[in-house]
Amino acid sequence: MKNDPGFYDYWPYDNRPKMKWPGGAKVAFWVAPNIEYYELNAPDNPQRKPWPEPSPAIAGYSTRDYGNRVGHMRQMKLLEKYGIRGSISLSTALCEHHPEIIELCNERDWEFFSHGIYNTRYTYGMDEQQEREMIHDAMETIYKHTGQKCAGYLAPALSHSELTLDLFAEVGTELFGDEGGIYTCDLFHDDQPTPIHTRSGKKFVSIPYSLEMNDTIAYVVNKIEPRRYGQIIKDNFDRLYEEGTDNSTVMCIPTHNYQVSCPHRLKAFEEALEYITGHSDVWVTTGREIAKHFIKNSYDAALADIALKKQGS
């Protein structure tokens, strides 16, 4: 085990080189619906049980299933209303289980990125070859069903190994050259994109995905009331927009159709989306577009500045 994952260097939020979004936007805003499949009878992993409750885990399973049966259409309609293309964090087995959902999103030119095969299959305990195979399978599945070259990763259930990001970057290049495997959502250390060290040395970035704005973290871990969730989204946006006058920022709302699309929660979420998209200097975009733009326009300047600041000046 390591004392530091070694993915990035300390890079103070102070005096960074100016990062520019298209049209001079202050904030790049993206919404990342997690569209997930949880298995009713998932195999045991030595380090994490698929369900906390005794099997069959009806409460947990049926809550997740609600997201696909009922919630998806509600959120999709809402994002469409506010001109937002979702960046889907996808349990890729959903391509096989529920192709209707994949088709609806693909028609709308939403982005699909990998969130593993199932959200009940964890990375823990896999050796390098196994993890590489799982990552490869997921990226290939997205390509086969949507024609999209998977650019981003959020490890299934946020379960990682030390090699996760290295493997994702490498498999992406093997499959799709420069377009595949260019960003990760697994790290929460910044409000701007940041370069990430991987084994292959390719240009690879972390895109802010925000655990704090994540509806499941808000509702299940932090147990926030729906209207307060709407309010903290607005507050989060206000500050990033204000700071974006000086240097552009990224705001992400990661969602789950089994959380945010529940009847008692949708209204607060809608109000927040209406508020954000009602501002003029917002680049409403996707994870892939942010990553590509950053790599093309700001990556090298960021690296140079990081090198400089490492020396303390």
Binding site: P43, N45, P46, A93, I117, Y118, R121, G125, M126, D127, Q129, Q130, E133, M134, D137
Partner: peptide, 9 residues
């Protein structure tokens, strides 16, 4: 490594 069934679906 994990049992190979962990990567079977």
């Amino acid at each position: 490594p994990l049992d190979k069934s962990y990567l079977e679906y």
